[in-house]
Simulated scan of single mutants.
Amino acid sequence: MKRKLLSWISAVIGFAILGAGIYTYQVYASVSETLSKVSQPLKRDALSKQSEDMKQGAPISILLMGADPREGERGRSDSLMLVTLNRTKQSMKIVSIPRDTYTEIVGRGVKDKINHAYAFGGVDATVATVEKFLNVPVQYYIEVNMEGFQDIVNAVGGVDVNNDMDFKLAGIHFAKGPIHLNGEEALVYSRMRKLDPRGDFGRQMRQRQVIQSVIKNGKNTEILSSYEAILGAIQKNVKTNLTQDEMFKIQQNYKETRNNIEEIEVKGEGKMMGDTWYYFVPDEVRQELSKKLREQLELPVQ
């Protein structure tokens, strides 16, 4: 059940980093300490000049990953969301990649579920595999542990959503209409799928509601009073190759992109192959998606 939630938890915390207005002088030292502890560069980062692109306001891409680490093993990236930010167009596009997507695992020479890349080679292998699948560069990543979700929602004061159907799950009643949710309630609210005739589509809608509310609450000046809780949750549950300066640049130069967000669904079909369930994405769908993302990143369309 937890794995199904990871498809959006990374976005919740990732957007808290991108959107929260906590970067003020009075908390600068605390932010600096936290960001130094969550820093984990990719192996290729030493050769990269992507910081210069950000300084010039060029479009950027960030892979948000929900990690499910297990004792004694690396675990899997059971959530993958590629976020592209275009400062000129003031637009943000979010692509949720199904965890069971059948694709080539870079560095292994085999095809498998895309989330298995993490088990094979960690963040580096996952980034490379997503790049090949979508045919776009991935400059940055934010990896989030499952346990960080409730802390972030609570730290921003909970979330407000407009629930379009009355239901009860895990002993919690969710009335139809505007409701306020704490971290635990938001987790359950976004978990529900079987009671919704729309299935995954209904669940994804609730997930987007929670994400949007976190973004909205993160922009409020009142959030300064909770910055220690936010930083604590980030420090415990987040890893990223974004530097402190790059995060500040995103807050300063790309903040308007969150006012024009497009959620993109990767269309495909789930079915069994042998004894394993996979999600197959037709080549024409993948190519059209790649074209859309390359245009967003202002890259030549191939």
Rank of each mutant, 00 (worst) to 15 (best):
T126L: 04
Y118W: 09
E184Y: 14
Y189E: 04
F120T: 14
D200C: 06
T221N: 07
L134N: 01
A117Y: 07
T126H: 03
H180P: 00
A128Q: 15
G199Y: 04
K132C: 05
H180T: 02
Y141P: 02
S213N: 10
I105E: 00
G148T: 10
T103C: 01
E104L: 05
T126Q: 07
D166H: 14
V153H: 01
Y102H: 07
R191Q: 15
D200T: 01
Q204K: 14
V214I: 11
A119F: 08
M146Q: 10
K216A: 13
N217C: 08
N135H: 11
V130L: 03
F149L: 15
M165E: 12
I114L: 03
N115F: 10
V144F: 02
I223E: 01
T103P: 00
E104R: 01
E184L: 12
K168E: 15
R203K: 11
G109Q: 04
A117P: 00
P178W: 08
I215M: 14
P178A: 04
F133M: 08
T221V: 12
T129Y: 07
E143T: 09
V159Y: 01
R198D: 13
P137A: 14
M192V: 09
Y141H: 05
N182E: 03
V138C: 10
M192K: 09
G199L: 07
L195W: 09
I172C: 02
I114N: 01
G177N: 04
N154Q: 06
E185S: 06
V153N: 06
G157A: 06
N145M: 09
M192F: 14
A186N: 05
R206H: 14
S96E: 00
Q204T: 14
R198P: 00
G199K: 05
I114K: 00
G171I: 03
H173D: 05
I211Q: 11
H173I: 03
K111Q: 10
Y102A: 02
S190Q: 10
L224C: 08
Q204W: 04
L195F: 10
L195P: 00
G218W: 07
N217G: 12
M165L: 13
F149T: 12
G157P: 09
A170D: 13
D160P: 00
R206F: 10
Y189W: 10
Q207Y: 06
Q204G: 07
G107H: 05
D124V: 14
V153L: 03
V110S: 03
F120S: 13
I172V: 10
E143C: 12
A117M: 05
F174C: 01
I142S: 10
N217Q: 11
Q139M: 15
V153K: 02
V127R: 02
V138N: 04
Q209P: 00
A128M: 10
D160V: 06
Q207N: 12
E184T: 13
P98F: 04
T126N: 02
V127T: 08
R203T: 12
